[in-house]
Computed example of a mutant assay.
Amino acid sequence: MRPDPVDLFQAQRPRLLRLAYRMLGSHAEAEDMVQEAWLRWQKSERDRIAEPAAWLTRVVSRLCLDQMKSARARRETYPGTWLPEPLIEEDDDALRPDNLTLSLMVALERLSPLERAAFLLHDVFGQPLDEVAQTIDRAPAATRQLAARARAHVQIDRPRYRVPRDTGDALARAFFEACRTGDATRLGAMLAQGATLHADGGGKVQSVLNVIEGAAAITRMFAALSRKFGSEMELLGTTTIDGLPGFICRIAGSLQTTALEIEDGRITRIYITRNPDKLSGVVLH
């Protein structure tokens, strides 16, 4: 009895969604790529496909590569900082983190589409190098070089350890409260000296356009924010965002997510997403 083609595809769908999201940084675009793969799967000569999982991975990867080329052009004119859509993690979420954090997702943006594909397929999703070469239509030696270059680029952004969930939740809650009250002393104690803040408003809502560098500058920004909006800042809950401790809140009615990278007990990077187009699917579990 032949396997049901729908069952075969559905068994691969969560992994294909993870791959597409990691390639594109967008849930909606990931869904579109997987839907297109489904249409191609329906039209394919399935009797000739010996390994459905490899075939579907190849189709989704190539679709994403084409999408990434146009996305790069759009991001050149993107207002301010571009961040991936926040991934609010749950144990049964179809888009599991695959040991990638938001910091690494941001680092992947520095790679070419082929470097990103080679790194994700080989280093993250464990695909053999010869299969990766076939997927991206490059020689194995060239594919190995692409993966090595990508690895070197992102290595410095790998966090040394993950913060336990309880510890992360407590720190995220304390950070929100310090921001809401504009407590400079408390903020200064929580931030590493070289901390950076990255905010994505997409030109749709008020947000800082450039990366803010240094604990002092970040503290000043939150103190000013507290004076203006402190009474209108509402914590909706703490969570994990792409492997990092974080929280969801409202400021003057606008939803935002904040993810915190922590090293040696201090916050080294802050990632704020305010672009409403990237928050439509955010649900606090």
Results as ranks from 00 to 15, higher is better:
residue 136 I to Q: 07
residue 136 I to W: 06
residue 138 R to G: 02
residue 138 R to N: 09
residue 138 R to E: 11
residue 139 A to I: 02
residue 140 P to C: 05
residue 140 P to V: 03
residue 141 A to P: 08
residue 142 A to C: 06
residue 143 T to G: 07
residue 143 T to P: 04
residue 143 T to I: 03
residue 145 Q to E: 12
residue 145 Q to P: 03
residue 148 A to V: 04
residue 148 A to F: 14
residue 148 A to S: 13
residue 149 R to M: 04
residue 150 A to I: 01
residue 151 R to G: 13
residue 153 H to D: 12
residue 154 V to Q: 02
residue 154 V to W: 07
residue 155 Q to S: 15
residue 156 I to N: 04
residue 156 I to S: 11
residue 156 I to A: 13
residue 157 D to Y: 10
residue 158 R to D: 04
residue 158 R to A: 13
residue 159 P to Y: 00
residue 160 R to C: 08
residue 163 V to F: 06
residue 168 G to H: 12
residue 168 G to V: 08
residue 169 D to W: 06
residue 171 L to F: 13
residue 171 L to K: 03
residue 171 L to R: 05
residue 171 L to P: 14
residue 172 A to E: 11
residue 172 A to S: 15
residue 174 A to P: 08
residue 176 F to R: 05
residue 177 E to T: 14
residue 177 E to S: 15
residue 178 A to M: 09
residue 179 C to K: 02
residue 180 R to P: 01
residue 181 T to V: 08
residue 182 G to M: 09
residue 182 G to A: 02
residue 182 G to K: 11
residue 185 T to F: 08
residue 185 T to W: 09
residue 186 R to F: 09
residue 188 G to C: 05
residue 188 G to R: 07
residue 190 M to D: 03
residue 192 A to Y: 00
residue 198 H to M: 05
residue 198 H to N: 03
residue 201 G to H: 04
residue 204 K to T: 12
residue 205 V to T: 15
residue 206 Q to H: 11
residue 206 Q to G: 08
residue 206 Q to F: 12
residue 207 S to R: 06
residue 208 V to S: 10
residue 210 N to Y: 12
residue 211 V to D: 01
residue 212 I to A: 05
residue 216 A to P: 12
residue 216 A to W: 08
residue 217 A to E: 15
residue 218 I to W: 02
residue 219 T to P: 11
residue 219 T to E: 01
residue 221 M to N: 13
residue 222 F to H: 13
residue 222 F to Y: 13
residue 222 F to A: 04
residue 223 A to N: 02
residue 223 A to F: 00
residue 225 L to H: 09
